Simulated assay, not measured.
Amino acid sequence: MVRTPLTPEERERGERLGALLRKARGDRSMVEIAAGAGLSSETLRKIETGRAPTPAFFTVAALAEALGLSLDELVRACVLVPA
């Protein structure tokens, strides 16, 4: 399966998501949050660093729950506002 290249907007949204997740994680370990969300720490690392800029909805929902964030917060923080 060939994956369509990401647009600059998709990459930027992934970077915003990663930054928000890192900030929400705070001092908690990546392993702790990943385990709480049912993910591997490597998956969380890829999302936080933008190497996986378009994670599946259920992955994002599980991370939001593990971090005590609402999906509304995530959407507001990650949506791109046209210039």
Rank of each mutant, 00 (worst) to 15 (best):
I33T: 08
F58H: 14
E9V: 07
E73I: 01
V79Q: 13
K46Q: 14
V31I: 08
E42L: 15
G36V: 07
A64P: 07
A83W: 03
I47A: 02
E32P: 01
L17D: 13
R51A: 15
A66E: 07
P8Q: 09
R51F: 12
E73A: 00
P82D: 04
I33R: 02
S70R: 10
E10S: 12
L80C: 11
T7W: 01
A34Y: 00
A61K: 15
S41N: 13
S29L: 03
A37W: 00
A34W: 02
R11T: 10
V75Y: 14
E42G: 11
L71N: 08
E9I: 04
C78T: 15
T7A: 06
A19N: 12
G36F: 04
L39H: 05
R22E: 13
T4G: 05
F58S: 14
E42M: 11
F58I: 11
G36W: 06
R11M: 13
P53C: 06
V79D: 08
V60R: 00
E10G: 06
A52T: 04
L74A: 01
S29W: 02
V2L: 10
M1S: 14
D72K: 09
G18Q: 06
C78L: 03
L63D: 09
D27H: 10
A37N: 04
L67E: 12
V2R: 13
L39D: 05
E15L: 15
A66G: 11
G38D: 04
G14Y: 01
K46C: 11
I33E: 05
A34V: 07
P53N: 12
G38S: 03
G36R: 02
S70Q: 05
A35F: 01
G18N: 08
E10H: 10
P53M: 09
E48S: 08
E9Q: 14
E12T: 12
E65F: 09
R16Y: 03
K23R: 15
A66Q: 12
R16Q: 06
L6G: 05
A35E: 14
R45D: 11
L44R: 00
L69P: 04
I47R: 00
V81C: 00
L17A: 10
G68H: 09
E9L: 13
M1T: 11
E15Y: 09
E10N: 12
L6N: 11
P53F: 07
C78A: 08
A34E: 03
E73L: 00
G26E: 13
V60T: 14
A66H: 08
G26R: 04
E9Y: 00
A77M: 03
E48M: 01
T59M: 02
E32C: 00
E9K: 15
G50W: 12
G18L: 02
G26N: 05
L69T: 03
V79N: 04
V81H: 09
S29P: 08
I33G: 07
G50Y: 04
P55H: 03
E12N: 03
L71V: 15
A83S: 15
L44Y: 00
G50D: 10
T49F: 01
